[in-house]
Structures are given as structure tokens and as C-alpha cells.
Design a protein around this nucleic acid. Structure first.
Length: 391
DNA sequence: TACACGTGGTA
DNA sequence: TTACCAAGTGT
């Protein structure tokens, strides 16, 4: 039985939308599937036509693809599947290795939930993924979209996963001018009307392929669309303006000073961030707090420096890294320590949270630095960012 | 419900 | 360079 975690409630029924004419529904479905059969993209996680998709591979790909481009996820998907061919392998892996191999992909809660989900499948479901949408939804890191996607693609369940592509395609098909995110309930309800027992997995992937290749955010190729002549936005020539979105807020700036401490042999001082929140459980270099408002004064920053304020040199330049909801502008301070100083730092920080430690440059890849940390370290001229995957 | 949560590519 | 965007989930 699932432990502790309360079951996630299903999305309540959306707003009443006019029922779709079954004949039109079937016509649109068949046109899209026909187009898909002739324009199907070859993707690393996609089973060959007629072959059964591996639920583990489908799930792994869907987690990696959340808010992430196909190009970015592809190499990670191959590496994970190669390293952990079955979900029970992933469940048995040390979490720190899973996090390290995820480094660079972003949204690190996904990696923590990925591991927790694999362990739940192994421990609570006999190593097999639940084959229903509701069962999948109760897994950590699996929300309404992913539950529907895995159910349709891996288990032929007649459900329509709604991602950003499907929202856009549906908004245009019905010329829904309500801005996102307010339009989400209506778009979900509209999309759900396409649910059908015939090739539900292919239909789901076809909708996403359509959004990714023709019904694109900008300058959609309506003249090549399998639904040309059926689309309300095309008829009104407003496809390029849909879906509308509420204006986004300002992105505040946070300032920090990072401390790159090097022991003889260029071993780098690193530690593990706290479990939750930004970059949770990932590797970092020591730094001042990341604060809004004024940049750090050098003397002020040095109060946070490992082993005290002496011996540090402020490097020229600023590292800029843009997160979803703020921009980080960081300076970097560098200090080379003697063997005695390095030992003194170990003594001073023994037992501190985050297990402060030294990492040889050749082991940085194994530690798995998030991109922002890799940028800071590279700015100090240490190691440099790993090219591609760190393993 | 609204916000937190990464990163890299594109115009 | 800024702004937007990409197969969303958790709180």
C-alpha cells in the first residue's frame, strides 16, 4: 500500500463546454492520426510503430520533458536508461548519484521525485507501474499531465494528456481568446472530448507533435496542418495571437558573492544544499545569502567567507544567471589555501550542515554541479564546465 | 489560487 | 540583450 502520502484528488470536471459533434471528432482524429503516421518524429523514448512502449521509459521521458526541450532531455534520457535499464535499478541507486546525473537539467525536485517514484513502484507495486491514470497520479512527481500521458502511451488508456502543446492547439482549434492560465479549464474540457479507445497513445503524441512542428507558438504553418479548414483561429486569422497570456511580472535581481576556495591540487570546496527549495539537495560552492536590493560590499561579503576574511581576492566581472522568477548577479571571490589552511577549514566546519568537503577537479563531474554553480566555478577558472554529461 | 521551481535556445 | 518559451508538479 502507498505509505502516508494522501491520494491526489482528480481534477474536478471542467466548465460545461458544448459537446463535440461525434462525426467531427472522428474526422479530426483520423486526419491527425494519418498525418502522424506520415510525419512521426523519431525520438529516443518512442517505440517503433506497432511496438509496445516500455512504461518505465515512457515515464522517465515524460518526467524529463516537463518544461524541458526535446533536445535537452534526449542525452539525459539515454544516459539514464543506459545506467538504470529498469525501474528497479533506478530505485536501488544511491540518490546522490541520481541527483548528480540529473545536474544541468534543472527543476531538481523532478530528480528527487523521480527517485522516490522509482522506489514507490519497486516497493509498493512490485516493480511495475500502475496501469491506470488514477494509480499513476498517486506517484510522486506524477501530476495530471504525466499520469494521462503514461496511461495513454504505455497502457492504451483513452485519455488526452494536456500539455502546453495541446493547450495551444486546442485554443486555436476553438479560437479560445481567454488568456492563459484562466483558459486552462476550458481547454482541458475541450481536449478531453477527443478521448477515444482507438490509438489513444498515438493520438496523444500526435497532438504534441502537431504543436511542436506545425502549430508552433509563433508563425504556425496552418497551410500544412492536417486540420486546415477545420480550425476557428485559422479561419479568423488569429492563430498567431493564440493562446493569449496574462502579462508576466517583473523579474527581481538577487545579488550574491560566491567563494571559490582551492586547496593544493585545485581541490574545490563544495557542500550540499538543504533538501527543499531552490537547487534542493544539489551541490554548491559557499556563498553569501542571495539577497534582493544592494549588491554586496566586499567587506560585507567577507563576513561570510570560509575560514575568515583574509586571503580572498575579488575576481573581475559578474556572473549572471536567470532563473524562472529572479535573476542572479554574482561576483566571485577566490582564495588559494595552503595544506594547513585547508585542514584548518575542515576542522572549523566539521559537522556543519551540507557536509562541507573538498572535491578534486577530476571529480567535479561526479559531484554533479547545477549549471549556475558550474558557471561560478568556471568564472574562477577552475576545471571549467563539463561538456555534455558529466559521466 | 498563485507562486516556486532551472536551463538553454530562439527572435 | 531582453523576453519568451518547452511534453508541469508541489505546496
Amino acid at each position: 500500500m502507498p505509505r502516508g502520502r494522501p491520494p491526489k484528488t482528480r481534477i474536478a470536471a471542467g466548465p460545461a463546454v458544448p459537446p463535440i459533434d461525434p462525426a467531427r471528432r472522428d474526422r479530426l482524429r483520423m486526419r491527425l492520426l494519418h498525418w502522424y503516421d506520415h510525419n512521426r518524429r523519431v525520438l529516443p523514448w518512442r517505440a517503433a510503430p506497432g511496438e509496445t512502449a516500455d512504461p518505465y521509459a515512457v515515464w522517465l521521458s515524460e518526467i524529463m520533458l516537463q518544461q524541458t526541450t526535446v533536445a535537452a532531455a534526449g542525452p539525459y534520457f539515454r544516459a539514464f536508461l543506459d545506467r538504470w535499464p529498469r525501474v528497479t535499478d533506478l530505485a536501488a541507486a544511491p540518490r546522490e548519484e541520481v541527483l548528480a546525473r540529473w545536474a544541468g537539467l534543472g527543476y531538481y525536485a523532478r530528480a528527487r521525485n523521480l527517485h522516490a517514484c522509482a522506489q514507490a513502484v519497486a516497493a509498493d507495486h512490485g516493480g511495475r507501474f500502475p496501469d491506470t491514470e488514477a494509480g499513476l497520479l498517486d506517484l510522486p512527481g506524477v501530476g495530471p499531465y504525466t499520469a494521462a500521458a503514461v496511461a495513454a502511451i504505455a497502457f492504451d488508456r483513452p485519455t488526452v494528456p494536456v500539455d502546453g502543446n495541446v493547450e495551444r492547439v486546442t485554443a486555436r482549434l476553438y479560437a479560445v481568446t481567454t488568456p492563459l492560465p484562466d483558459a486552462k479549464p476550458e481547454l482541458r474540457a475541450r481536449a478531453a472530448q477527443f478521448a477515444h479507445d482507438y490509438r489513444p497513445g498515438d493520438f496523444a503524441q500526435a497532438m504534441m507533435d502537431l504543436g511542436a512542428t506545425l502549430c508552433t507558438p509563433r508563425r504556425p504553418a496552418c497551410h500544412r496542418c492536417p486540420w486546415t479548414g477545420e480550425c476557428a483561429a485559422e479561419a479568423r486569422e488569429i492563430a498567431d495571437d493564440l493562446p493569449a497570456r496574462l502579462p508576466k511580472g517583473e523579474r527581481p535581481v538577487r545579488h550574491a558573492v560566491a567563494f571559490v576556495a582551492l586547496a593544493p591540487g585545485d581541490a574545490l570546496r563544495i557542500r550540499t544544499r538543504p533538501e527543499g527549495g531552490l537547487l534542493g539537495a544539489m551541490t554548491e560552492v559557499p556563498a553569501t545569502p542571495w539577497r534582493e536590493g544592494a549588491p554586496w560590499d566586499e567587506a560585507e561579503a567577507l563576513a561570510h567567507a570560509p575560514l575568515g576574511p583574509t586571503g580572498w581576492r575579488m575576481l573581475p566581472g559578474t556572473v549572471v544567471h536567470v532563473f524562472t522568477h529572479f535573476r542572479l548577479e554574482a561576483r566571485v571571490m577566490l582564495r588559494r589555501m595552503t595544506r594547513a589552511e585547508a585542514a584548518a577549514l575542515d576542522a572549523a566546519e566539521a559537522g556543519e550542515a551540507g557536509d562541507p568537503r573538498w572535491c578534486k577537479p577530476e571529480h567535479l563531474g561526479v559531484a554533479g554541479l547545477p549549471s549556475v554553480m558550474a558557471k561560478l566555478v568556471e568564472h574562477a577558472g577552475v576545471g571549467g564546465r563539463q561538456q555534455g554529461l558529466p559521466f
